[in-house]
Design a protein around this nucleic acid. Structure first.
Lengths: 130, 130
DNA sequence: ACTCAGGTTTACGTTAACGTAAAGGTAACT
DNA sequence: AGTTACCTTTACGTTAACGTAAACCTGAGT
């Protein structure tokens, strides 16, 4: 019922190359259906791709993204066993702490940029005045 | 007057290898003094290194960090010319927008992690109950 | 004199994440 | 039939940011 996407559809929407999408497939992150040779992507695939790219923007490796994305795949061993789940929680906590560190860095960086911008525009103003 | 640092001091403090520090030097980001062969680092150098690493945590390339750090070097052409300053402001604005995007991504990621954590601990609880 | 723990240069190796051809299939115009 | 516009696989190339190893110096301790 729900619509499907060509590889170009997704490449254009997310502003990446088709090569990139095929690469993610060889890395086992996507498994599109085939119509003959041609790849056909479901909305599910599209969501997965979106998650990969979001992770990428945050500096995660593909391997790391794969770990996190694994959790969003329903029906992939619903009765996951305890050790796996516990490891999962650990990963989550570690990731969260990483994000906190990033937030902190961003705050300080923003502050530094404020200072820099101030200095720069002051210097510009001084030049105009001269 | 102010103290100095050996390459090991800095490597230990920031938990990186000496190779990394030397690499940053060949990339023109550090210029320590020499005492014979041996490198001697000033507090200034230490700050520069700190900025490099902060940028790295945020996913900046060394080239990008170098651009930003250039602004913090006092006495390096105090009467910087207009085009340079204007480009600088542009870089800052672009960087700021990138950081905003990252903040957004982090928020959504955190939210997703919240959901995932909930699911995981629910699954764990269910297992314990069984 | 010897060792040893630091430092140094030089240079080749490595990994991730794709880029970039090359060579070819297929469906649809014209 | 020819060209256009997609898609495909295969495979070698590339860049950043270091790792790793070899071969060497050098001052401090024994």
């Amino acid at each position: 019922m729900s619509r499907t996407y060509s590889i170009r559809d997704l490449a254009d929407e997310f502003d990446i190359t088709t090569r990139t999408i095929r690469f993610y497939e060889t890395e086992g992150m996507l498994n599109p259906q085939r119509e003959g040779q041609t790849r056909i992507y479901t909305p599910q695939d599209r969501v997965t791709l979106k998650l990969i790219l979001r992770g990428k923007r945050l500096g995660l490796s593909l391997a790391e993204s794969r770990e996190l994305i694994g959790m969003y795949r329903p029906g992939l061993e619903p009765e996951a066993n305890r050790p796996q789940l516990e490891k999962l929680l650990a990963v989550i906590e570690q990731r969260r702490s990483h994000l906190r560190q990033q937030l902190h860095d961003i705050e300080r960086m923003m502050q530094d940029l404020d200072d820099a911008e101030l200095k720069a525009s002051e210097a510009l103003a001084a030049l105009k005045g001269a």
